[in-house]
Amino acid sequence: MEYFVQQLINGLTLGSIYGLIAIGYTMVYGIIGMINFAHGDIFMVGSFIALIAIIAFGLTAGSSLAVLILALILVLLIAMALTSVYGWTVERLAYRPLRGSFRLAPLITAIGMSIVLQNFVQIAQGARVKPLQPLFSGGFTLMELEGPTGAVFRVNLSFAQILIIVTTVVLMTVFTLIIAKTSLGRSQRACEQDRKMAALLGVNVDRTISLTFVMGAALAAVAGLMYLLYYGVIDFYIGFIAGVKAFTAAVLGGIGSLPGAMLGGLLIGLIETFWSAYFSIEYKDVAAFSILAIVLIFLPSGILGRPEVEKV
């Protein structure tokens, strides 16, 4: 039981990170029907920007908690802002000119952009992994269990995990509210349904699409910082695997659906964690992707996705 609770906590943490990235995939797919393969690398860029900012602020584990939290909020804002610029630029330069081109064109440039970002970071920052000393040590011990040999197994909820889960919940709420309640959210949904009609009502469709990329990139930057705090090491290649997992999460939850992306992210995180815990860690990706395949066979539009209706 204790072991299960511990894995649940770990899985939710990992799932939050996947969920934050998956939202970027799902929002862009929703509005222009394109898979932005460079999104995983936008996440990686966000992670690097966060690392640079942390080093620039001189944060260490020795800093007092108040300073640490204030500085991290600042780091988060900087990373979100700068990563958004990357997201916006990629859309402006590589995707917008190809809108209205054949369907594969933006897909190919997206893969190209992914490689561009990876190589850019590899050259600018070096290929070696970048470590970050843990900023938060400690946490809460939720349960304690004394084994027959006298060894004590503790269920821990670390400060980093709390931070990740709380931030994710807060940001998810904010972004869900933006989509549901603000004028920008309404125009995004309108563009999703009928871009041409939205334009005839005075909605600047290009700007709405750009802002969608910006929102996705900002959330990816949050995920980047969380990843950095949780694992403590990053390199230029983390965007690939995390991107593929998050994309899988978006498809699993039902691509185009915002709650679906979050649910898919949590599920992928949990599946991966529980599989590693109870079966074998080597096969965790096999498990995650096998479950994806099974879900897609029986639920082709994902868990919360709407069935695709062909427009006549």
Binding site: I178, T182, S183, L184, A190, A198, L201, G202, V203, L211
Partner: peptide, 23 residues
């Protein structure tokens, strides 16, 4: 109602300082 609100997107976008104010 949302259909009618989308049509009033532009004045609202300005009033919300491009969503930041809205949030």
């Amino acid at each position: 109602l949302e259909n009618l609100m989308v049509a009033q997107h532009n004045p609202l976008m300005k009033a919300s300082y491009f969503t930041f104010g809205g949030v």
